[in-house]
């Protein structure tokens, strides 16, 4: 599996730390209530197919990236900088 970092180009998966489903892009407000926080911290869609994930290029430029990836085929569909997705 290789990931195309927007800054560094296509790199080995080993350069990247895996954070998981990209729920951090939509973090609930501190007072959003227990249900929203349970949903955010624990409950997962866990799809068999395309998923949006956060990866960190720790062995490279240090960018957080949003990777759209197929969990059934391991196909890389899209990569964007988390800072641009969030903005």
């Amino acid at each position: 599996m290789r990931i195309t970092c927007p800054y560094c180009g296509e790199r080995d998966r080993r350069e990247f730390y895996y954070r998981g489903a990209a729920v951090d892009l939509d973090r609930p407000a501190p007072d959003a209530g227990g249900e929203a926080w349970d949903d955010f911290v624990y409950q997962r869609e866990n799809p068999a197919g395309p998923i949006r994930e956060l990866w960190f290029h720790e062995g490279g430029c240090g960018a957080w990236i949003v990777v759209t990836r197929n969990t059934v085929t391991h196909e890389m569909i899209d990569v964007q900088l988390a800072s641009e997705v969030k903005a």
């Binding site: 998981g20 489903a21 949903d39 624990y42 409950q43 997962r44 869609e45 866990n46 799809p47 068999a48």
Partner: peptide, 18 residues
Amino acid sequence: GRSGQVAAMAGMRLPIES
């Protein structure tokens, strides 16, 4: 491993990643 898909049929999300 497919528990998430089965639970989704019952309208549930699970605290699980496969």
